[in-house]
Amino acid sequence: MEGTERVFERLVRDNQDRIFALSLALTGNRHDAEEVAQDTFLRAYRALADYAPERVRELKQRAWLHRIAVNVFRNRVRGVRPRLVELNGSEPSPASGPEEDVLRRAEIDELAARVACLPARYREAVVLRHVQELSYAEVAEALGQPVGTVKANVHRGLKILRGENHGDGDD
């Protein structure tokens, strides 16, 4: 048990940024992202407590956490209707820190909100491939889909994003 706690704490500290970034890209806002990321780690904790020590040692932590996060995200989408995200800054970001940081944060939030407008199947594929920079094989494993499907979904997702980016650029 003591061992599990140490493994878990390292898991959280090593992966918190990655999993939070993933959750933000999937959900499109920081509030939901924190919930998804927290749920992901809590599920991981419960699973770790049940796993035999060999299984914990051999675990590919990164891929495993991505799979859990995608499942947490999917369950939420199933439970509540995906909320429509307004494009222009739906969440007023708490303005603290230097102006530059606030601007950057607003930009990131807008970007996340735009990605969150993609249909879920494209969004998952695009986010894992291009935000998290997993290989197609890793994405396929995390999503439980064939590699061909993943490639097609990434392609279609990017196409939609490019269209929107173009539109914004003209403003």
Partner: peptide, 22 residues
Amino acid sequence: VMIDLKRLGDVKAPAGFAERVL
């Protein structure tokens, strides 16, 4: 688009996140 997406991947977890999880 790719560069923008990559920037999304650089987001940091909010302060105190790990502690709240623990």
